[in-house]
Amino acid sequence: MDIVVLVKQVPDTESLVQIADDGVSIKTQDIKWIMNPYDELAVEEALQIKEAQGGTVTILTLGPEKAVETIRTALAMGADQGIHICDPAAEGSDALAAAKLLAAALKDLPYDLIIAGHRAVDEDNYQVAAAVAEFMGIPQISMVNKVVVSDGKITCHRTIEGGTVVVENSLPALFTTQRGLNEPRYASLPGIMKAKKKPVDVKTVADLGVDGGSVGAANRKVKIKAFNLPPERQAVRMIQGEAAADKAAELLKILHEEIKII
């Protein structure tokens, strides 16, 4: 079973995000960068399938030079090799262009299964994996919290509002991860040492045969016009009272009579 995992380096979810001077991007200094949390689940699932069934796990990422750190993290967890699409011309690509680049890299790779996070927690587009599946002409199964792969088939539990749908597809296929799928392992020290020797292939836009005029910040279909911080709320109104019962009565009065919400 040859598995490709799509990963992305993103700001740590515990980071405070600040708007850069250009007003359409974030300040990148002082940010701790991590592997997208949903991609960690994808790497873990790929490793578990490989451990049970044999095969290879390839990590594919698109990002600036430092994104190689994320590939190294996945290699330290146990993946075999990395491919890093790294080209200033690709920076700032929107989801559709990112998917085109990833799909172009996948065309040269043998794979039975592609696994990705259901969204990256930076742009929150929920889109790249679906677009990659479309460009590769394979089925996608989104937000999966349980998966069984056997006999050339994949059975996925897809989470939807209020439940799950169990669906079956034949391979090759792509699925995206949801929390609950597994508990990602930490890289071990020997793993980290080994990862340094594992191959990471760097590809440019030209290497992939993709038209430079269709990717990068200048060619976004979805143009970012402005970044704003969420509106501030008015200062909290602390509810006073002697006992819990007094505070509760006061709160209910506000919710029921003042703002009429219950």
């Binding site: 929107d94 559709l96 587009n125 889109q127 679906a130 677009a131 479309e134 996608q140």
Partner: peptide, 21 residues
């Protein structure tokens, strides 16, 4: 929704259309 997120990403790629999620 779960359906709309899955569908719109795929549809946008098929139609080569921009998607605001």
């Amino acid at each position: 929704s779960a359906q709309g997120k899955d569908l719109s990403g795929r549809l946008a790629a098929r139609l080569d259309a921009g998607l605001a999620m």
